[in-house]
């Protein structure tokens, strides 16, 4: 009888045999590395313009060429990776946090709270993400920027000049607030099924408190599918960030984002195709990598699903 046991070690063994997932893992690891050490890796300042070298194709000094303002594309891609990764991690962390807490409590205790959470989850899921972000962008962004400007003028503290702060807190905060429902549902379903396992009943029979049972008996056993969902969720959040930035409701230029680089590149692609190809290719590779990794984790953590 094979049991899902030393889950992580077994899963790693199975993952290692899956070449696609390993490739995905490598790309993701590289992305994390680039995002973490971006400022040291980038060959140029992502903002410095060299008007003598505008829209040049890839060459020795600029591996991926320069854009129409003469900025180094590679450096902007590297900083774009920082943006994408930061957004993805922040959005996913907040969403997972909300989802796990609500889902676990709803699934474990059931009753009225469960019904309320499920109702709230369904409500939230019915809000179209794009629409919400556009609405927030249109209604709240301007007043907040104005308010931050006045704060800056009053205090002269440079933190109020940071537009990224407004972007993140507003747009991606709101994104996080509507992307928790899948996590909540997943965790609730897991907890519901684990709650009735004999070892949980045994823990109750031992007199342990609900908090101990939830933390030590239920949640650790619910982690497998959550890890898969988080891996897929990170990829999705990155694509979403790019999509919003592409549409002009995400990160505000000049902060580099793959989305607004693609959007800029689209306008000039007949003359300078590299401006479109480079960010689009990077986005595609990273997205595919996250999907491969997610699939691989899924197979590794749920070996029974395989043939």
């Amino acid at each position: 009888m094979e049991q899902p046991t030393n889950l992580w070690r077994d899963a790693w063994k199975r993952l290692r045999r899956n070449k696609l997932a390993l490739a995905g893992l490598a790309v993701v690891a590289f992305l994390v590395f680039v995002a973490a050490f971006g400022p040291w890796l980038a060959p140029h300042d992502y903002l410095s313009q060299n008007l003598d070298l505008r829209s040049v194709p890839p060459q020795a000094a600029h591996w991926f060429g320069t854009d129409d303002l003469g900025r180094d594309v590679l450096s902007r891609l590297i900083y774009g990776a920082r943006t994408a990764f930061l957004v993805a991690v922040a959005v996913t962390l907040i969403a997972v946090g909300i989802g796990v807490i609500l889902g676990a409590i709803a699934g474990f205790y059931g009753g009225t709270f469960d019904r309320f959470v499920m109702w709230f989850t369904d409500m939230t899921m019915s809000v179209p993400q794009l629409l919400l972000v556009v609405v927030i962008n249109a209604s709240l962004k301007q007043p907040i920027s104005t308010w931050m400007e006045t704060q800056y003028l009053a205090s002269l503290n440079p933190i109020w000049r940071n537009t990224m702060l407004a972007d993140f807190v507003l747009v991606f905060g709101s994104m996080a607030l509507i992307s928790w429902p899948p996590y909540a549902r997943l965790v609730r379903a897991q907890v519901l099924s684990i709650r009735s396992r004999p070892y949980v009943t045994a823990a109750r029979a031992l007199g342990l408190t609900n908090r101990i049972i939830l933390a030590r008996y239920v949640l650790p056993n619910a982690m497998g599918p959550l890890v898969v969902a988080v891996s897929a969720g990170l990829g999705t959040a990155m694509v979403l960030e790019s999509a919003f930035s592409f549409l002009g409701v995400g990160v505000t230029p000049p902060t580099p984002s793959w989305g607004n680089m693609i959007s800029d590149g689209l306008r000039v692609w007949t003359n300078s195709p590299h401006l479109l190809v480079a960010p689009a290719a990077v986005l595609a590779v990273v997205t595919v990598a996250f999907n491969f990794l997610g699939d691989g984790l899924n197979d590794a953590l749920n070996p029974k699903g395989q043939k």
């Binding site: 009888m1 049991q3 899902p4 046991t5 889950l7 396992r197 004999p198 070892y199 009943t201 045994a202 823990a203 029979a205 030590r216 008996y217 650790p220 056993n221």
Partner: peptide, 13 residues
């Protein structure tokens, strides 16, 4: 109490 199923009566973690 001692339960029936020895495979699920202990927390696998």
């Amino acid at each position: 109490i001692v339960f029936q199923d020895p495979y699920s009566t202990l927390n696998p973690r």
